[in-house]
Design a protein around this nucleic acid. Structure first.
Lengths: 210, 210
DNA sequence: GTCTATATCGAGATAGAC
DNA sequence: GTCTATCTCGATATAGAC
């Protein structure tokens, strides 16, 4: 019986090994997707044997699920932080900047998520329809209040979030294309930051006639 | 020797069968990705046998490549149409609307492309670094002229394109997530159109102080 | 706990009958 | 041209020694 199926608390060695397997798996899954990844690839990258992987995790899918579960926690954190009592435009631009930073520093997580959603979110659809939908609804309401108070332009809060997710994660998920198209020597993230900041300030600035 | 390796021109039957195989393959590849798709799935959906598929195409990869080649032609067409002598904001908003329409009407193509780029564009990297980069450079220059003439706000043309691609294709590629998060009964594409139009008009409107 | 060896299975591709 | 049957290989997962 594998450790992962028992309830005994893991030793330090076990925790470290579990971590290094997850770390290696994130590397490979984010590059090749679930189906394109073999346990052997993960084993090689983690520096352990294939059966040893299956001692710590019941199956390839179990590794994948563990990664997605971890991911969701951290992925939604910045959204939580949007504060209705703060300055509207600054709050949203801060969120955009945080999301772009995450795309830069955690591209593997972004791509793992992209693969999952592209496939129809087989493992996390319940979370999307549950926690995520609820959280977005809450924050969308805050934004609707800002709109109603005339503090920002009259925009659809849901599509605002979609556009923020799309534009920031694009630099992680479509990294290859971005680098292929950008002129040589132009850093994607350094130049994307000011562009996006400007875009959302323009979008959100309240109309004079409102 | 398979027909696909000969140089004889195909009969009507052969062309129709090739088409129906490609059609079925697009369905399956766009749902499950290259590695997640089996020839059997394509065969079932096309209503032919597995060996029959391999009579018309040399391999699974050959089908995939054929789809990508077709895709690129149509995918870049709207970008070509941006006309430097037209009204700047109308030209760009027209492009945005066209791209959104394509995401709505050709979501399979969008997802096929997304899978390919996520994986590191193994089949189309040369085209991205060649034709696409060249085309974008040309159009970016046109936009730079508009900026220099004070006709639109001072924005980075490359990141403008990235943001348009990201925000429009998001509704095809992340369709599942969009629908999971949107309030019930709210149509994604119908509500995205006005949002994006407003966003790009706000972004591009020239500064008073320029 | 970790390894070598292996059972098992799914899938790409081929052979050969019709 | 199209089928049934099959070859072959790679990958998940397991058995069993150490």
């Amino acid at each position: 019986m594998a450790r992962s199926q028992t309830t005994k608390k893991p030793t330090r060695i076990q925790r470290e090994k579990t971590r290094s397997i997850l770390e290696a798996a994130l590397d490979v899954f984010s590059d090749f997707g679930f189906r394109g990844t073999t346990i052997d690839m993960i084993a090689k990258r983690a520096g352990v044997s294939k059966p040893n992987i299956l001692y710590y995790f019941d199956s390839k899918e179990a590794i994948h699920k563990a990664l997605l579960a971890e991911l969701l926690e951290t992925w939604l954190a910045p959204l939580q932080e949007i504060d209705e009592s703060g300055d509207p435009i600054e709050e949203i631009c801060k969120y955009v900047a945080q999301k772009l930073k995450m795309a830069q520093n955690y591209p593997r997580e972004s791509k793992l998520f992209a693969y999952e959603v592209l496939q129809g979110a087989p493992h996390i659809l319940p979370e999307l329809e549950g926690d995520l939908k609820t959280l977005v609804a809450t924050k969308a309401e805050a934004i609707a209040h800002w709109v109603a108070a005339g503090k920002i332009a009259k925009i659809d809060p849901h599509h605002l979030f979609f556009s923020i997710w799309a534009t920031t994660q694009h630099y992680a998920d479509f990294d290859i294309q971005v680098r292929a198209v950008l002129p040589d020597g132009k850093d994607p993230f350094a130049t994307a930051g000011p562009f996006l900041d400007r875009m959302y300030r323009a979008l959100l600035s309240p109309d004079p006639d409102s």
